[in-house]
């Protein structure tokens, strides 16, 4: 079996423990502490040890979904992005850019956060962006 180890960072609390995901054929088998991480020095809390459980949970969303009445309809990516962009452009151009608001995420990476605020400011043309850290 082809086993890989990927050193990464825990997605839960602000400690930011180094954890290593053990994978085989696209599945995570195990989580363990990254030995030399300066934050956790070989330790993890109960949430960290079990982190892979949620990643591969059966409830994970796998397809873009569009609401049609009381139903959800599966879409392919291109179709979904076309519809989303058209709706946003329509609202931006009808009511003005400040009629759109964006919540970015204290769970997502720096790169994703940077990109989403840039998108909000450049493409939607509003500064209505915040996250729930105040919360």
């Amino acid at each position: 079996m082809d086993i890989r180890h990927t050193a990464t960072t825990c997605p839960y609390c602000g400690c930011g423990c180094g954890l290593t995901l053990e994978t085989s054929q696209g599945r995570i088998l195990r989580t363990s502490p990254t030995p030399h991480s300066p934050v956790n020095e070989g330790r993890l809390c109960i949430k960290g040890w079990n982190v892979h459980d949620f990643v591969q949970h059966a409830d994970r969303l796998r397809k873009p979904l569009l609401r049609t009445g009381s139903q959800w309809q599966n879409l392919d990516w291109d179709n979904a992005l076309d519809i989303a962009a058209a709706r946003l452009a329509h609202i931006r151009d009808t009511y003005g850019p400040d009629s759109i608001g964006v919540l970015t995420s204290a769970r997502c990476t720096n790169e994703e956060n940077y990109l989403l605020q840039k998108f909000t400011r450049c493409a939607l043309r509003t500064n209505n962006i915040d996250h729930c850290a105040r919360l």
Binding site: I91, Y95, V102, L103, S105, A106, C108, L116, T120
Partner: peptide, 9 residues
């Protein structure tokens, strides 16, 4: 506000 985009919250 007429539209919201919510990422991971």
């Amino acid at each position: 506000i007429k539209a919201m985009i919510i990422m991971g919250e």
